[in-house]
Design a protein around this nucleic acid. Structure first.
Length: 572
DNA sequence: GCCGTTTTCGGCCCGACTGTTTTCAGTCG
């Protein structure tokens, strides 16, 4: 029983309790526990099994929740959850996904009309029965119908790459509106989360109607969902929703802080304000009615006794304690990256030649790259056997003579086969400058087999790094079942580097495991896995992921200069 | 349900917008 699964049971429990009208803080306690489990690097089951340790050492987990987790770990089930499921059908919980429907209204629909599925709900809206309920009405019924359609078609969250490009397009458009002196991205997009459920944009303007009018006419906007004096909500084509908030200049920092979140981070910040006799809201910091600060975010943080905290860290996962101690990491930046150690060429499934890739990398300021085409197991991509690989390396060697100012490593992305052997034998691997070992096939194998494969690769003396370790594709393919504690300890022991793959649909390692790798001193490589000359564009997402993990340039091997990196490679 | 050098009980962040209402509950972020 793994942490995300336990977390999902608590999330479900929280939703069920909410519909039953349970105390909101009790509901929150379950949600907090779910979050704690999700962001935990080690397995809760391991803590349960370790003598002398208790789950109550975790933030927000008391005796009751510790017992429940133990029950789940040991029996795979939770009687309380079974009971609630018997009382509230799954279709009723699903109704919570509809925008505008919260626990109270869902409970009314369930109890008053006996609705238990989205299909029933749709029919009840269309027949007019929903509009007759107390507290409902025609508009509510229509908005539920719209919400059902949206849930059916849109899925929910979009990748950060899609979210960012939409948000940046709208920001640059709104920046041109007369009277708009400042406009920025806030919310989860500014925190650079892997996916965004919606977008938040903040603007300073004397007259809020001007940017709002402009937004309504933007080609990306499909529908205006709400509009008031300071806030406007629209739905973009493709389904994602966007909030525009217009604030006065003296509130801009407070509003940026407020709307960047995360919710959990902000709760702690506002509590700190309270403790200092202050009130913090999106308009500023106030002592009584007196405005104290709020023009910049730094002012807000200073008023609660903290230095500015980078948005990527604002998850209430220890950043406030680090800030308080003056130990916030100096996060790595895109410009720190000196090399890229994972890319493909026309030799396998890439679209550009060795020389074209080298030139493109050089044009972006990179000082060294590794060409890492696929090994033979990846037949679909025309993977290389030993003979073709050695020829490919000779071709790379020729290109070295045609371009200066960039070093090119003869590398390989070698598959770790289902039987835990490497796709190429040690002899040819020993001739490589750089070997990145990866799982492509058999990702659904049981944990024991997956771990055997990863550990064998880590112990292979020719393997320099493990690429996209989990194999997940965000929103479509789940991770392989990895015991991260064992995996990270082995990588640390054998001096094997771990990749943060920058592809927006991979971002693998994730932030939690990358932070756990950092804590063990494992060097991280942030790679693009480019398949074309434009593939390097994604590097920014990998760097963002590293920032969310709290990595500095000293934690990242390809932030080293070529001289230092090549020295480290030789010393392995 | 959690948490605590003010506390083991009584707190637990804060405001905008909507729809259905005659003053506010529900939802959202």
């Amino acid at each position: 029983m793994h942490n995300p699964l336990i977390a999902s049971l608590f999330e479900e429990l929280a939703a069920l309790l909410e519909i039953q009208g349970a105390n909101a803080f009790r509901v929150r306690a379950y949600r907090n526990a779910a979050r704690t489990l999700e962001s935990l690097s080690e397995s809760a089951a391991d803590i349960v099994a370790t003598a002398g340790r208790s789950l109550t050492e975790l933030d927000g987990i008391g005796q009751d929740l510790a017992d429940k987790i133990k029950m789940i770990v040991e029996t795979g089930a939770l009687p309380q959850l079974e009971e609630l499921r018997a009382q509230v059908p799954a279709g009723v919980v699903q109704m919570l996904r509809i925008s505008g429907l919260g626990p109270k209204k869902v409970a009314t629909l369930f109890h008053e009309l006996g609705l238990t599925t989205l299909v029933d709900l749709k029919a009840a809206c269309e027949s007019g029965r929903v509009a007759e309920l107390k507290g409902f009405g025609k508009k509510t019924a229509q908005s539920i119908l719209d919400g059902i359609a949206h849930v059916e078609e849109a899925g929910s969250r979009v990748l950060i790459s899609i979210a960012r490009s939409a948000a940046e397009a709208i920001v640059s458009d709104l920046a041109q509106v007369a009277g708009v002196s400042q406009v920025s991205i806030a919310g989860s997009c500014r925190r650079r989360q892997e996916t965004c459920g919606d977008l938040d944009i903040l603007a300073i303007a004397e007259d809020s109607s001007l940017p709002m009018d402009r937004l309504e006419r933007h080609p990306l906007v499909e529908k205006v969902l709400a509009r008031g004096e300071t806030k406007q909500r629209v739905r973009l084509r493709g389904g994602i929703e966007l909030d525009l908030r217009v604030v006065p200049v003296e509130s801009y920092g407070a509003a940026m802080q407020y709307f960047t979140g995360s919710k959990e981070h902000n709760i702690v910040i506002r509590r700190r304000a309270q403790e200092r006799g202050l009130k913090l809201n999106e308009y500023g910091l106030f002592r009584g009615d007196e405005y104290v600060a709020g023009r910049t975010e730094a002012e807000v943080y200073a008023a609660v006794g903290l230095p500015f905290i980078p948005p990527e860290l604002r998850e209430n996962r220890g950043e406030i304690e680090l800030a308080e101690a003056g130990s916030l990491p100096q996060l790595i930046e895109l410009a720190d990256i000196q090399g890229d150690l994972h890319m493909h060429t026309t030799a396998t499934d890439g679209a550009a030649t060795i020389l074209e890739m080298a030139e493109a990398a050089k044009a972006r300021g990179l000082k060294y790259i590794a060409i890492t085409d696929h090994s033979k197991r990846v037949t679909m991509a025309n993977g290389l056997d030993a003979t073709r690989l050695r020829q490919h390396w000779r071709d790379i060697d020729k290109v070295r003579g045609q371009i200066s100012g960039i070093e090119i490593l003869c590398g390989i992305e070698c598959d770790i086969l289902e039987d835990a052997t490497m796709d190429l034998d040690d002899e040819v691997l020993s001739e490589a400058d750089w070997v990145i070992a990866v799982l492509h096939y058999g990702l659904k194998q049981p944990r024991e087999q997956i771990m055997q494969r990863l550990l064998n690769a880590i112990r292979n003396p020719h393997v320099d790094a493990i690429g996209h370790p989990s194999g997940r594709l965000i929103g479509s393919r789940p991770s392989a079942d990895i015991d991260y504690t064992t995996f990270l300890n082995a990588a640390a022991e054998h001096g094997v580097m771990l990749e943060i793959n920058s592809c927006p649909s991979r971002l693998d390692l994730d932030d939690i495991q990358a932070a756990a790798a950092k804590s063990r001193g494992i060097p991280i490589v942030i790679d693009t896995d480019s398949h074309s000359v434009n593939g390097f564009d994604v590097l920014t997402y990998g760097v963002d992921q590293a920032r969310r993990a709290g990595l500095t340039k000293h934690d990242v091997a390809n932030a080293l200069s070529w001289a230092e990196f090549s020295r480290r490679l030789k010393s392995r």
